[in-house]
């Protein structure tokens, strides 16, 4: 019997339609509209006029918060991503040796599903002068803790701690799952070859984890670029502009200042930034990510 090569094109079209229509309407068109908006003077209410590149030029004009927001966002990302990865990988290995590893993974995951507003509010109380950290230091060592959120030199670090705490469980879970799937035969072989614990970790296990590290670093980086709720509630960007992020800048310009066009410009720059960095990650993965042959 001759086997006819049949394709299901018509059915495929039918099954795909709801998703494709929704995606066109709510993702693709808005993306194009966002790019267009950034070239217009577009108040929430009132007349829309063409502005050319003015919105982009204004971002770097005197008095604009955008440069500070951009630097903060990049700094946040550069601090958060490596710290997050190193800590979560180390903890994932450590927890995998415990007999309670399943329980611990869920416990570490709890902050991930906690609404970020609640996370920020809770940490705000922890950091509060006379709050739990301060009073613990006072009663144990008789010293005051500096008001971390109130000082522009420490506010960002204080926010970073919160972000790390909140995102910790997600990457830990990814690495735990990857560690569980490490091929036992390879590990056994390396042990027979006399690889010690540390050598096995660095030369065998970590390289086998690189696909998970690639995934986790990309996702963590993108979400660090998009940071908003935590600094918004914790510091509202202050003191001064020390914790303003690009997304906060977008939100404030658009929905507190009523300038949608001027707000679309930093949003597009953020988008471009994410695209470029993801692209670099994607192209660079050949150099360090080991995929199964």
């Amino acid at each position: 019997m001759q086997r006819k090569k049949k394709t299901d094109s018509r059915a495929a079209l039918g099954f795909l339609t709801p998703s494709a229509v929704g995606m066109t309407l709510f993702i693709l068109l808005p993306t194009l509209l966002a790019i267009a908006t950034s070239f217009f003077n577009w108040p929430t209410y009132g007349d829309v006029t063409f502005a050319g590149l003015d919105n982009y030029k204004d971002l770097f004009a005197a008095g604009s918060q955008f440069p500070a927001a951009l630097i903060n966002t990049l700094l946040f990302t550069i601090i958060v991503v490596p710290l997050n990865l190193v800590l979560t990988i180390a903890t994932a290995f450590w927890v995998s040796t415990s007999r309670f590893s399943k329980l611990y993974r869920v416990l570490f995951f709890l902050p991930v599903v906690t609404p970020s507003v609640a996370t920020a509010v809770i940490w705000k109380l922890i950091y509060q002068p006379d709050g739990i950290l301060d009073s613990t230091l006072q009663s144990m060592f008789g010293i005051h803790m500096p008001n971390l959120l109130g000082d522009s030199s420490t506010a960002m670090l204080a926010v970073v701690v919160v972000i790390l705490w909140q995102g910790f469980g997600y990457n830990m879970l990814i690495f735990s799952a990857a560690i569980d799937q490490l091929p036992q035969d390879v590990l056994d072989a390396s042990m027979l070859d006399g690889a010690s614990g540390l050598t096995a970790l660095l030369k065998i296990k970590l390289p086998l984890l690189t696909p998970a590290i690639f995934f986790a670093s990309t996702v963590t980086m993108i979400s660090a670029f998009q940071m908003f709720s935590e600094p918004f509630v914790l510091t509202a960007g202050g003191p001064g502009t020390s914790t303003v992020t690009v997304v906060m800048n977008v939100y404030q310009t658009a929905f507190q200042g009523g300038e949608l066009g001027a707000a679309a410009a930093p949003a597009i720059i953020l988008f471009a930034l994410i695209l470029v960095v993801t692209m670099i990650q994607w192209l660079g993965q050949k150099k360090w990510v080991h995929y199964d042959q």
Binding site: F26, T31, A254, A264, A267, L270, L275
Partner: peptide, 15 residues
């Protein structure tokens, strides 16, 4: 399309 951040979409979505 998963690379398009929500923040880029909120302004046109609001419009």
């Amino acid at each position: 399309t998963m690379m398009i951040p929500q923040e880029v979409l909120v302004i046109p979505m609001f419009l």
